[in-house]
Write a protein that binds this DNA or RNA. Structure first.
Lengths: 222, 222
DNA sequence: TAATTGACTATGGTATACCGTAAGGAATAG
DNA sequence: CTATTCCTTACGGTATACCATAGTCAATTA
């Protein structure tokens, strides 16, 4: 079982709750922190001793408050951690359900578990920890399900992604065409842009381009 | 001090955490539940005994899962509770920061405290409970600040919020107008809808309605 | 080579969104 | 009461989005 676990989570109550769950697993040393910067400091400090942390459980989003912050998100924390202790096991514990974001997280940072916050989260956390101990990856069932279907989404390639981003950034169709002209992209005419947007609307079952943007955001594509 | 407290919160970990916080206040009987319907059953059952609950701490949003639900939100639970035990003290404990919703909650249901989930939530929960014991209302500082600035804005907030939601759901301007006709809302003409959308675009500095929706989602307005 | 296909583009017509103006009515101020 | 202001609505013109059609060109195939 893990010996030294660090919890990074801004919500105080969740800290307490996760701590209690870890108690039930008989983990001897549990540290908690409410800021990413503090988490990194603690990890660094412990890494220099003979008692480094062997597991990090971290949220993704941390609210801003009066304190200055260098690391502003779980992603940033993970990226920083990987440079000093690349073998540290990491569990991401978040409400994030946008599959694009999660897939990116898994692909980029090679995290060991993704647990979605929800009713069964305590049970899932325990499962995740046991699974990691066997050197396997754990993922909440609902998310695992979505990940399997993620190939549908990767059809919408970089081009579509950029197109949706530009829409969400407030560019009109003609402006997008001009932008693509400059970048010398294929399908850079106004006509092609229109067709592509239309294709995306069919693909995502959106009635308007406003809804298209909303869906794209909801799925974490942009 | 309160003797019998019920916690309604779908996130298991938060349940544990709040329970621990209440332990620190030496509250003898703490019950937890992850469903609104169960919460109501427990409240009803206890109300018939000589040990009714004297405090309810409830979240606002409860995720859907396989179970059938009658009560789907904290608001619904509160409304139901008020019919059977109108004097029950209620603490709402939520991440909700849309001031319109919160003001509506306070005005309609006469709740005793609103604690916003965040870094200081445990301390605030304790403060809230102590404040309620003195028969006063407690509100998180950040929310209290916002409430002071919002007198008549809240109505327009609701309206704008719905408008943005309908846009994100793919309704066209005319369909939104029709929807507002049916609901007998003020400013229900196509012209008014257009004007309002335009006002929102100026307010949020959006160039297109697509961007407006994106910004609204980003800020958690919808 | 000739035909075919597919990706891209140009064009024009229709629908919708956008924007300004003005009229009506309710509430408010003088 | 009248004037003013604010809100709502109607209306009309312009811009943009939407949609169908057809043309160009390059690559592929027979």
């Amino acid at each position: 079982m893990f010996q030294n676990v660090l919890i990074a989570e801004d919500q105080n109550t969740i800290n307490k709750g996760v701590e209690r769950t870890l108690n039930e697993l008989n983990i001897p040393n549990i540290a908690t922190t409410q800021y990413c910067d503090d988490a990194l400091l603690k990890l660094k400090a412990a890494f220099r001793t003979d008692q480094p942390f062997d597991l990090l459980i971290t949220d993704l989003s941390f609210k801003a408050d009066h304190r200055e912050r260098t690391l502003k998100s779980g992603e940033a924390l993970i990226e920083a951690v990987k440079t000093i202790q690349p073998n540290l096991k990491i569990v991401v514990f978040s409400v994030e359900h946008r599959i694009g974001k999660i897939k990116n997280l898994i692909d980029t940072y090679d995290i060991n578990a993704y647990v979605e916050k929800g009713r069964e989260e305590s049970i899932e956390l325990k499962k995740a920890i046991h699974t990691i101990l066997e050197d396997k990856m754990y993922c909440s069932p609902s998310i695992a399900q979505l990940l399997r279907n993620v190939d549908d989404i990767s059809q919408t390639d970089q081009y579509d992604e950029l197109l949706l981003q530009l829409l969400a950034k407030g560019l009109k169709r003609e402006q997008i065409a001009n932008y693509f002209q400059e970048k010398d992209f294929p399908a850079r005419s106004l006509s092609s842009i229109e067709k592509r947007i239309n294709k995306l609307k069919v693909l995502f079952d959106a009635h308007t381009s406003e809804q298209l943007v909303a869906i794209a955001i909801d799925r974490g594509l942009i």
